[in-house]
């Protein structure tokens, strides 16, 4: 039945088990949210672990935070928030049937992701240079750590920022994918489900960083 769509003049093919494009859109959206919950719970496990050990070893965590440069985290926060804005604008322009502007917004979003990763790269290499590695690899003598298990703090630091970084890269590739599809003309105000989904994913990446920044860089 529902191979044609209620919307006039768009070329997206509605899958056979949906009634119409709107039905497909709402279902996909729910699927996306269900997936986002799993992301929150997965990252959340790390946050729970962090809270517990932060409570047990507050001084050790404070010492760890001192080795981080809050300015780097600060710049990255601003970059990510800005990229979230451009991502939202990308969808906005598609809703308004302005694909060219949408392409520009998405491209800026990818660029911001790249800047974020470059800053991250410098942060990481700087730490490696100082002998700051996670866990038992941390060079206690070289760092001059006051707490013998400072490696745990950096275990959390590298796990959380590393997993987050993987998500940034994943998000960048997803945005690149919808960027090309936008250029190809797949999306318009009637059909932009994929962009919406990728957008929600990108905002999750931002959301997690919003918490990581104060937790890792500032609290101490």
């Amino acid at each position: 039945m529902s191979t044609d769509s209620t919307h006039a003049g768009h070329d997206h093919h509605v899958a056979h088990h949906f009634r119409n494009a709107e039905h497909e859109y709402l279902t996909s959206k729910e699927g996306i949210w269900l997936f986002m919950v799993t992301e929150i719970l997965m990252f959340g496990g790390l946050f729970v672990g962090y809270s517990i050990f932060h409570n047990i070893y507050p001084e050790m965590f404070a010492e760890g935070a001192k080795y981080l440069d809050w300015k780097m985290g600060f710049i990255n926060t601003l970059v990510l928030i800005f990229s979230s804005l451009t991502m939202a604008l990308g969808i906005y322009f598609l809703q308004k049937n302005q694909p060219k502007k949408a392409v520009v917004s998405l491209a800026i979003t990818i660029l911001c992701g790249a800047i974020f990763m470059v800053v991250k790269y410098f942060e990481y290499t700087h730490k490696f240079h100082l002998g700051i590695f996670p866990g038992r690899l941390l060079d206690v003598a070289k760092v001059g750590a006051e707490h013998a298990n400072l490696g745990m703090y950096f275990g959390f630091y590298y796990c959380m920022t590393g997993l987050h970084g993987i998500h940034v890269l994943l998000g960048m590739s997803l945005i690149t994918w919808v960027l090309f599809r936008t250029i190809r003309g797949d999306f318009n105000s009637n059909y932009y489900t994929a962009v919406e989904g990728v957008g929600i994913f990108w905002h999750i990446v931002d959301l997690i960083w919003i918490f990581l920044f104060p937790l890792l860089y500032l609290v101490g």
């Binding site: 729910e30 949210w33 986002m36 929150i40 719970l41 959340g44 496990g45 946050f47 729970v48």
Partner: peptide
């Protein structure tokens, strides 16, 4: 509700 559930169950774990 779906998205909120994630935060609730995290709170539970903690």
């Amino acid at each position: 509700v779906i998205f909120g559930a994630g935060f609730f169950f995290l709170a539970l774990l903690l």
